[in-house]
Amino acid sequence: MNWLYGAWAVFEKDLRLELRNRYAVNMLLMFVLSSLFLVAFGIGETAVSTRVQGALLWVVILFSAAVGLGRSFISEEERGTVLLLQLNTRPSMVYAGKLLFNFLLILGVNIVALGAFMLLLRVDVRAPGLLLSTLALGALGLSGATTLLAAIIARAANKGPLLPVLLFPLLVPLLLSVVSATQAALPMGNGWNEAGDELLTLFGFAGVVITVSVLLFDYVWND
């Protein structure tokens, strides 16, 4: 089977299943919105620095990814469709399809989170293009790391809250870069001048994470 066709088929299957009950999308949106409301209520009228604003936004996004993306492989185990996928596709196709689906999911959630965040915390944006690039590259790195770890926890016996524990230590470099880039895009920041290195780092992080995932995915998937 053609590799691109196989990967696309896995993606299409996930998308179709998601559109049937919209569990992951709804859950992620509600998670992001309710936690941002909590943050907004907690802060109240106080003015917080742009660094804190960026950190709050990204911590909420990381938590939502850790909660929402863990399902992507567990659901295959629950439906008993792992064997079918193993028979009909190569591991890298499954990884690529799932990665694409998770990336789009997280990107959508990020954009909604950003809108709610600007509204609730009264944030102005100085460089919208920069902020959107940061969100997109952040979503790429985040989904790259989460997809492999989701496959790992689907193999574990006690799946519960394992994903955040595995995920967060690996995301420290990502968090530092996205928060700096977000800060640069907010009113006190220097826009693109300051964030070029950060975006490059995010791009590199996503590249490394996805490459290593593709190499290691076989060992998790073919059990």
Binding site: A145, L148, L149, I152, R155, A156, L166, P169, L170, V172, P173, L176, S177, S180, D197, T201, G204, F205, V208, V209, V212, S213, L216, Y219, V220, D223
Partner: peptide, 24 residues
Amino acid sequence: RIAAVYNLFAAATVPFLLYIVPRQ
């Protein structure tokens, strides 16, 4: 096998801190 995959995956991401953190 799963632990080995996680160990190697983590080993690939940690060097990033070498380049990122010193700038911040």
